[in-house]
Simulated scan of single mutants.
Amino acid sequence: MEAVFSKEVQAGLEAARLTSLRRASRLRIDVGGVIYPVLRMWKTGFAVEAENAPKLRGLVDLFDGSKHLFQCLIVATQEEDGEMVYEFKRATAVASAAALDFERSETAPAGLIENYGSEFG
């Protein structure tokens, strides 16, 4: 059985759903210093509230709170149920250290201790 609601009730339910998603997510995108909260994210894209987000295209940074997760190349695909949906063309994970240009041996020492002469020698 399917319930039919008036347009006002349906709009209220949709607003409550968006508010709930906004509060539950710590995800956000940064586009040239402008921050947009991310409502939902999946493997190939994410959704932002449609009334606040323009049809973005290009390079954005994706954060979880203050942690920088991805640098993404995105394109807006559609607007549905009050959400603007974006798809990733590329999502590169942000590394905390620079990439090595050599192979690190598993048996390599963690550090080097030098002896600059001994007073007790």
Score class of each variant (00 low, 15 high):
67 K>R: 14
99 A>I: 08
72 C>L: 07
29 I>P: 01
40 R>Q: 13
37 P>E: 12
12 G>S: 10
115 N>C: 10
83 E>A: 06
2 E>N: 08
97 A>I: 08
114 E>Q: 15
79 E>K: 04
120 F>L: 15
100 L>R: 12
111 G>S: 11
108 A>R: 13
76 A>Y: 00
75 V>M: 03
75 V>E: 06
80 E>T: 13
10 Q>K: 05
106 E>K: 10
8 E>K: 07
51 E>K: 12
113 I>D: 14
118 S>M: 13
14 E>V: 12
88 F>N: 03
99 A>N: 07
105 S>W: 04
115 N>L: 13
15 A>I: 04
26 R>Q: 09
25 S>C: 10
88 F>L: 08
12 G>T: 10
76 A>S: 10
43 K>M: 14
17 R>S: 10
104 R>H: 13
57 R>V: 10
32 G>S: 14
62 L>G: 00
24 A>F: 02
69 L>M: 09
4 V>D: 05
61 D>N: 06
78 Q>K: 05
10 Q>S: 08
37 P>R: 15
15 A>F: 07
22 R>K: 08
16 A>E: 15
12 G>I: 04
73 L>Q: 12
107 T>Q: 12
79 E>Y: 03
26 R>Y: 04
56 L>E: 00
24 A>K: 08
107 T>E: 12
104 R>E: 14
56 L>Q: 01
92 T>M: 09
38 V>M: 05
120 F>Y: 07
105 S>H: 10
7 K>Q: 09
108 A>P: 01
40 R>A: 12
101 D>C: 10
25 S>M: 00
81 D>A: 06
97 A>R: 06
48 V>C: 03
17 R>P: 02
3 A>E: 02
13 L>F: 14
115 N>A: 13
40 R>L: 12
80 E>Y: 07
28 R>Q: 14
10 Q>P: 01
69 L>P: 00
82 G>F: 02
82 G>I: 05
19 T>S: 14
106 E>D: 13
26 R>M: 13
46 F>Y: 03
26 R>S: 10
3 A>L: 15
23 R>W: 12
24 A>W: 00
74 I>T: 01
88 F>A: 02
17 R>I: 01
34 V>F: 15
12 G>A: 10
46 F>P: 00
64 D>H: 09
36 Y>M: 08
101 D>H: 11
77 T>D: 08
8 E>D: 11
107 T>V: 13
4 V>S: 06
91 A>N: 11
17 R>K: 06
34 V>G: 14
50 A>N: 04
67 K>Y: 06
31 V>I: 15
7 K>W: 12
